[in-house]
Design a protein around this nucleic acid. Structure first.
Length: 484
RNA sequence: GGUCUCGUAGUAUAACGGUUAGUACAUCGGGUUUUCAUCCCGACAACGCGGGUUCGACUCCCGCCGAGAUCACCA
């Protein structure tokens, strides 16, 4: 059995979780779970300017929807709380004082205008801007209202990344990063290290954009005298076009929006997990449980992956069929209740279940129900042009179409029992009697009862619509076409 | 510009020195009594470039080119 792993997802409450960043919740979840370990949710709310009201709730509900239950964090609590960084300030200050005592941190009285001038001057001189080259000579005692900086010691660093492999950098990137801001709140750079340490996080999963900050983090671990955790850098999810990482600016939709559009959480989890990871087999569909057991850190891709919404839709269609077939109509139906067209609102549940059972296999998203099922609930608007211009029907005169409808109505009227098999038998007999081709007769009837671009198999459609409705609609079309 | 990362079909990926470079989505054909979808069958389509190492390189090494990330009192 593998050693128990603790991971975390640590978002800032600055907005919704979108497609581009949700994977950094999924992977750590899978990694923790497969070792029987702990998955922590921590809210990194130290940036007061970017704080968005309600964002935390949105983050929580998105994770819950995906089935990524956290073992420690908001709501559930845990032994390492609190799980909001703004409630952990004393902790950061304690560790900060240790660094000051060790001579590895200093209060920086330099006004921001001066700092900006340093940067501008360095850039003008075409030399790398490093704050440590401008380190103030006189540093006051640290007190609230003044930023605290790390006192860096330039050197080489090497480390292992479980995805990227062995990495190393020179001293150029080490700098006197700000640990605690003037407002008394820690920066991410400092806070996450303290939190991961205090919370017992063994594996840090985060986007590759943090790779360039690694030397500074390594220096911090060293100065703090603590052991490094394992590092797992996740490559970016890229926008469909171009090679830019998918962000809100590029139209990354929120995960919640996909939920509203009828994407199933199973499909979303499956799709995202497999975007940048595979288990080496040709399996395409994974349940959450399968992902947990089969996930392998060393199979995480190390290049970015483009987000392909078409494949998401395909995956979703697969999951709709799979869940329906496995669970049956009664278990599956509740998932669809928010996705029916308005005209179906007052329709009985049993009827909607029958409609669902004949149409589910052509849904890509649950919201397709809205566009595909209207005619089951309300008589469609008769549009004769759809008949007269149909590629199979345009060769017939309106009189001929009317007669064909009459013959069909008469035959269907004769039916003793109204079920799919009987209907199919009658339709087959009609083909023989009229001498028409399947495409001709079936198109006529199908269009006449639905006036929809597509519908389920004709026998099933007529069965669900019911005798009264079918005969009434065919009659109405006949009347219209003959009068015309 | 400095530092770092990445590079197999349109997209996601398999291959871990020897294969006709496999699979899925997409696309294009065909089949399943009409349509749409499912399902099935088939087709198209890729190792960024150049050097090495080796009997042999998508796989190892070097260079180049291309793409990206990061250089905040944001995370």
């Amino acid at each position: 059995m593998t050693k128990q792993i603790t991971t975390r997802f640590a978002p800032s409450p600055t907005g919704y979780i979108h497609i581009g960043n949700v994977r950094s919740a999924i992977y750590p979840y899978l990694i923790a779970k497969q070792s029987g370990g702990t998955f922590i949710l921590r809210i990194e709310d130290t940036d007061q300017a970017r704080y968005v009201e309600g964002a935390t709730d949105l983050i929580k509900s998105t994770l819950q929807w995906l089935g990524l239950d956290w073992d420690e964090g908001p709501e559930v609590g845990g032994p390492h709380g609190p799980y909001f960084q703004t409630e952990r300030l004393e902790l950061y200050h304690q560790w900060a004082r240790k660094l000051i005592a060790a001579g590895r941190a200093y209060a920086d009285p330099t006004p921001s205008e001066t700092i900006a001038a340093y940067r501008a001057a360095d850039q003008a001189a075409k030399i790398p801007y490093l704050y440590r080259n401008h380190r103030p000579t006189q540093t006051p005692e640290w007190h609230p209202g003044i930023p605290l900086r790390f006192k860096s010691e330039p050197k080489n660093y090497q480390w292992q990344d479980l995805v990227m492999g062995d990495l190393k950098t020179g001293p150029e990137v080490l700098d006197d990063i700000v640990l605690i801001k003037a407002d008394g709140l820690p920066t991410y750079n400092f806070a996450h290290i303290i939190d991961d340490l205090e919370m017992g996080v063994t594996h840090i999963c985060r986007g590759v954009e943090y790779l360039s900050s690694m030397p500074n983090y390594l220096a911090l671990y060293e100065a703090l005298g603590v052991e490094r955790p394992y590092f797992i850098s996740l490559p970016h999810i890229l926008a469909p076009n171009g090679n830019k990482k998918l962000g809100k600016r590029d139209g990354a939709k929120s995960v919640d929006l996909y939920r509203q559009e009828g994407i199933l959480p199973e499909a979303m989890l499956n799709f995202l997990a497999c975007l940048g990871w595979n288990d080496g087999t040709e399996q395409e569909l994974y349940t959450k449980e399968e992902l947990i057991t089969k996930f392998r850190i060393d199979h995480i891709q190390n290049s970015g992956a483009h987000f392909d919404e078409v494949k998401l839709l395909w995956t979703n269609g697969q999951w709709i069929r799979r869940l329906f077939d496995e669970q049956g109509i009664d278990q599956f139906y509740p998932r669809t209740i928010d996705f029916w067209p308005e005209v179906a609102t007052s329709a009985p549940e049993e009827y909607k279940k029958r409609v669902l059972s004949i149409i589910y296999d052509r849904l890509k998203t649950l919201s397709d129900l809205r566009a595909m099922t209207d005619y089951f609930f309300v008589d469609p608007k008769i549009n004769l042009a759809e008949l007269t211009t149909n590629k199979f029907l345009k060769k017939f005169s309106e009189t001929e179409l009317g007669q064909l409808l009459t013959t069909s109505i008469d035959a269907l009227k004769q039916l003793q029992t109204w079920d799919a098999t009987s209907i199919q038998n009658t339709l087959n007999q009609l083909l023989v009697d009229t001498g028409k081709k399947t495409a001709e007769l079936f198109s006529l009837i199908r269009i006449s009862v639905s006036f929809a671009p597509f519908s389920p198999a004709l026998d099933l459609t007529l069965d669900v619509l019911g005798r009264e409705t079918v005969l009434a609609r065919l009659g109405a079309v006949r009347t219209a076409i003959l009068r015309d």
